[in-house]
């Protein structure tokens, strides 16, 4: 049922899918589109919650094990005295990541995604019932480790950050263009391992990102030795400032999820009807 990898239905949107199903058990294309439009609607609602509390929300995406949780731990260590931070963790089965964040002394809520391979806006909204937003400056959402479908779901957040660890290879932006087109910032993680790898080039990774017509900034860092974390913290702080300025103008920040083609083409009236045959007599 998934529009990408077979599992579009998450516990958060399952009730909608069920309600959507007519008697003869049909779904698919229209449901895919409806699912996404329902998700977008929920995402706008979530964003309104965030904007009401003036909390900048960052969606962290990467392959499994690229270092999302390690980055969050290091970030919280640096910022917990100056900013109020919380984390929503999307994890398939375990609470490990949530416990690691809580050990840093900030609130974390775990969304058990079960077999789903991405978070959606409904799952995030459910999580908001368990997390106090008031007084927060920054909310991180650690998405499920997956470079495929998380990119297609707006959660109501403001910025997409995509991690690429040096052990994954510099060709990943070319192999997962849907994900990397959506990046507002690309982070190259685990740079402390670069001396042991002879085939990863940050320049190539950046060129591959650039080839997707994405001019997002790129920051290299290591959560282990702390290199590059200053640049990342500076980026975060400038994003908070930019976001607050937008709020003052009654505007909000939106992540880079460009569906230009979709918007240009998927207008009603694009579905054409061709009666090809009048074989009815044969069938009667």
């Amino acid at each position: 049922m998934c529009n990408t990898c077979g599992c579009n239905i998450t516990p958060g949107n399952r009730p909608l899918v069920m309600a959507e199903k007519p008697k003869n058990g049909v779904t698919t294309v229209s449901v895919l589109q409806n699912l996404l439009s329902k998700n977008n609607h929920q995402a706008e609602h979530n964003r309104a919650h965030f904007d009401a509390q003036k909390v900048l929300v960052i969606n962290l995406m990467s392959s499994p094990g690229s270092g999302k949780t390690a980055l969050l731990e290091a970030t919280i260590k640096r910022l917990r005295d100056s900013l109020k931070i919380a984390v929503i963790e999307g994890d398939l089965e375990t609470e490990n990541d949530t416990k690691r964040i809580q050990a840093q002394g900030v609130p974390a809520y775990q969304i058990m995604t079960g077999t789903a391979c991405h978070l959606d806006a409904h799952l995030v909204h459910n999580a908001l019932h368990h997390l106090a937003l008031d007084g927060l400056d920054l909310l991180f959402i650690e998405n499920v480790g997956n470079l495929v479908c998380p990119a297609s779901f707006d959660l109501g957040h403001h910025r997409n950050v995509v991690l690429l660890s040096v052990t994954e290879g510099d060709d990943k932006p070319a192999k997962y263009p849907v994900m990397f087109r959506a990046a507002d910032l690309m982070l190259i993680s685990k740079t402390d391992l670069l001396p042991y790898l002879d085939d990863f080039s940050a320049i190539n990774a950046e060129q591959n990102l650039h080839n997707l017509a994405n001019d997002a900034p790129v920051i290299e860092f290591s959560a282990k030795d702390g290199n590059g974390l200053d640049a990342w913290i500076t980026w975060l702080q400038s994003e908070i400032t930019a976001y607050k300025a937008l709020l003052l103008k009654q505007q909000t920040q939106r992540p880079k999820i460009q569906q230009d083609g979709q918007l240009l083409h998927a207008q009603p009236g694009n579905s054409k009807f061709y009666p090809v045959s009048n074989k009815a007599k044969v069938h009667k």
């Binding site: 569906q259 230009d260 061709y274 090809v276 045959s277 009815a280």
Partner: peptide
């Protein structure tokens, strides 16, 4: 690299071909 995508990210139900009763 300052380009705008005109097509390539959409999912469209383009055509349905039917057999009619009349």
């Amino acid at each position: 690299y300052n380009t705008k995508l005109l097509s390539g990210d959409e999912l469209i139900l383009a055509r349905v071909e039917l057999e009619n009763a009349d």
